[in-house]
């Protein structure tokens, strides 16, 4: 299992760079991962999505689909794509420190 230093902390990541244990995540890490993904600042809307993803993961063991994300977090699909350009579910999952979402929708 590869190790990576994110925001000064050594964590385990999978081959694609997703955190293996979401409990190792900190908010400082989120910003560092986001910047590596090309998102310079995390706004309240980003954090709303990230915290929702973490809550979903804690409850269900997997990240939500975009539809669920949209319906339960109240962030519209259009905005999700603006907040996380180039694939909201995966990018948000990566920044939120949860494993890669497995769904097709």
């Amino acid at each position: 299992m590869p190790e990576k230093i994110i925001a000064g902390k050594t964590v385990n990541v999978d081959d694609e760079g997703y955190l293996v244990d979401y409990k190792e995540w900190t908010e400082e890490m989120a910003l560092e991962i986001a910047r590596a993904e090309g998102i310079e600042e995390l706004t309240d809307r980003h954090l709303l999505v990230i915290n929702f993803m973490r809550a979903e993961f804690e409850a269900n063991g997997t990240g939500p689909s975009i539809r669920r994300l949209n319906k339960k977090s109240g962030v519209p699909t259009k905005e999700l794509y603006q907040l996380f350009p180039g694939g909201p579910a995966k990018k948000a999952a990566r920044i939120a420190g949860i494993t890669k979402p497995q769904g097709c929708v």
Binding site: I66, Y81, G87, P88, K90, V105
Partner: peptide
């Protein structure tokens, strides 16, 4: 529909 949506999800 699934292919189109899935494509966008992958960027």
């Amino acid at each position: 529909l699934i292919l189109a949506n899935g494509a966008r999800m992958e960027g």
